[in-house]
Design a protein around this nucleic acid. Sequence first.
DNA 1: CGTCGAGATTTTCGTACGTCATCACGTTCA
DNA 2: TGAACGTGATGACGTACGAAAATCTCGACG
Lengths: 154, 154
Amino acid sequence: MTYENLDAKLVNALLGDGRASLRSLAEELDVSVTTVSNHLSDLEDEGVIEGYTPRVDYDAVGYDVTAVIQLQVEGNALPDITDTLRDHRQMISVYEVTGDYDVIAIGKFKDTDGMNDQIKELLTDPDIKASNTSVVLNAVSENEQFELDIGEDA
Amino acid sequence: MTYENLDAKLVNALLGDGRASLRSLAEELDVSVTTVSNHLSDLEDEGVIEGYTPRVDYDAVGYDVTAVIQLQVEGNALPDITDTLRDHRQMISVYEVTGDYDVIAIGKFKDTDGMNDQIKELLTDPDIKASNTSVVLNAVSENEQFELDIGEDA
DNA sequence: CGTCGAGATTTTCGTACGTCATCACGTTCA
DNA sequence: TGAACGTGATGACGTACGAAAATCTCGACG
């Protein structure tokens, strides 16, 4: 075939417009609609593309405060803590990490009061040994998805 | 009308499937296609929905390492640092924050060597007074977008 | 050891059909 | 008065299917 890395190009094109039609993608990549359809199905089956979402501006709907919460946790309680955090719907990312703290979580809140209430509630857990909360003053970039190198795919 | 919060429901439905057709959305929300089309256009114009993207599993394409980088920066150099970080394509989030550090950035890398190289390069900047890198052992959840309360919209 | 080619496999393509998005219009309902 | 609705027309869209092209496999031959 004429295209070495159609899959990567396809992902990159979709990163530009996640609702682009198969036809417009086909034209952009200079292949047939069928080929786009086949490759896209494959990418979805392989799990490279896990789904599609709108990019919601939470600021615009009243979630004005973002916070980065770092926790030191009793070792054996880690799964419980991370489960709890994940199930908090306003937690957008929860990471187990190396370093001074064991967990880093990022959450969004409607105001600092709501944030304080929720964080205080979390910290009642006796397995949390220490915590540190940083409030985001400015989200320079957030949840960016970068384009793939042409040459890498699944 | 019969629906108090069609906008929020519409956003939530799209969070479930960002490529859903207007017709399927209309059926799901029990309103007409015309209404869905109008509201969706409004949401996009208002900036509540900023666009659409595929959810790419970067693990599946070789970016196995995620790191959280915290920096202390000379005050007047902050804009330069955040600009530099944002322009690094592998940085998915860059926040200016309160607390012990001034900047928290989250990046994805193909391996720890690549990570070390990039981070070391960043830290050559004389305006960076201190830094702390945490490697993600387990991404419990990442870039989740939560559903809106029925009752809130733009 | 290199390469040749027939057959099998994979990939790409064009077509066709039913569905979809969009727009303009007038209507209904609170 | 404004928001939601229905209708109809038009061009675009997604998908299925078989044909065509490219690629791979592997034994045979020089």
